[in-house]
Amino acid sequence: MLARSAESLYWIGRYLERASHLARLMRQQTESLVDSPVRDIYFGWHRIYGTLGRRPHTGPLDTEGDEYYTLADSFTLADDLTFEATMPDSIRNCFSLARENARQVRHRISAEMWASLNRPYLRLRDMEIQDIWASTPEQFYANVEADIDTFRGVSSSTMYRDQGWHFIRMGSLLERAELVASVLGAQIAAVRLFAVPADAYWTSLLRLFHAFEAYQQGDGLAIDAGRVLDLLVSDPHLPDSLSMSVLGLHRELSAIGDGPDRTATSQARSQVDHMSDLLRFVWPRTSDAEGLFAEFRIAGRRLHDLVTETYFDYPVVTRSARIGEFDQ
C-alpha cells in the first residue's frame, strides 16, 4: 500500500490508544475526587503527569493543598489534559489528530470506521471543561473510552484485513506498550515520593488495566507490589500486559511483511526481539524496575524509528539523483 497511507493508519492507531489511555487514567482520577483522601488525589495527579513525562503549567503538584485547593487544582489539571490546545497529548488533540489522519485515508478505512471516529470528534470539538465538570466528569471519560472501544469494534468487524489493518494494530500496540511501561515507571516514582506503601495505590493501578480480577485469582488477599508489577509485565492473558503487546507487535510485523530494504526489515524485527528479551530475561532478575521500564520505552521509541525508516520514509535513490552525485 501507499507508504503515506500506511503511516496515517499507523498514527490513527497510536493517537486513539493514547486518547483511550489518558481517558482511562482521567476516569479513575475523577472517580477518586468523590471520596478519596487529598493525598491519594495528589498521588493520582503525580502518576498521570509522570506517565506523560510532563509537569503541569502552573505547578499545583508542588504543594498539597486543602480540600478546596485540591478540587480547584484538579479542575485546572483536568482541563489541561482533556481540552488544552497547547498540550499535545490532551484527549481532544489526540482525537483531532487521529481524525485528521483518518481524513487522509478515508478511502482506506470503512465508512463505518470514519463515522465512528467523526461523531465523537464533532462532540469533543465544541466542549469545554465546564461542560463536563458540572455533572459527572467520570462519565464523560467513560464515554470517551466507549467511543474508542466502538471504533475498535467497528474496525475489527468492517475493515479489510490488508496491510492497512496491520498498521493500525501496530500503531496501537506500540503506543500501548510504551504507555503501560510509562505508567509503571510513574507509579514506582510516585510511590517513592509519597513514601507510603498504601495498598490503594496498587489496587488502583490494577483497576486501571482491568487486572484486579486477574490478580485476585492468584494466591492470597494481600496486595504485593512485586506481584502486581509482575502481572502487568508478563501475564500472557492480560490484554494490557507488556508481554501481550510485544507478542502482538511480533505478529503484526510479520503480517506486514518486508519493506523495500530487507536489512531494515530485519532490524525492526530484531528490535521487537530485544523488547521481548527485556521482559523474558531481564525483568525476572532486575533490581531496578524503574530503570527497566525506562529502557523498555527507549526500545519502543527505537522500534518506532525503525518502522518509519523501513516502511514510510525509506530513501529512494533515483538515477537522476545518482547522476547528480557523480557530477559533484
Binding site: 500500500m1 501507499l2 507508504a3 503515506r4 497511507s5 500506511a6 487522509q104 485515508v105 478515508r106 478511502h107 496491510q163 498498521f167 506486514i256 511483511g257 518486508d258 519493506g259 523495500p260 516502511y311 514510510f312 525509506y314 529512494v316 533515483t318 538515477r319 537522476s320
Partner: peptide, 28 residues
Amino acid sequence: RQIGAELVEGRDLVVEDGYVYMRTTAGL
C-alpha cells in the same frame, strides 16, 4: 475509494527513466 485507486500526492510519486512510480510500503 469508488475506483479502488490509491490517493496519491505529488510527494508520493517518483519518475525514473520515463516511468512513474509511487512509494509503497514494499518499495516503488
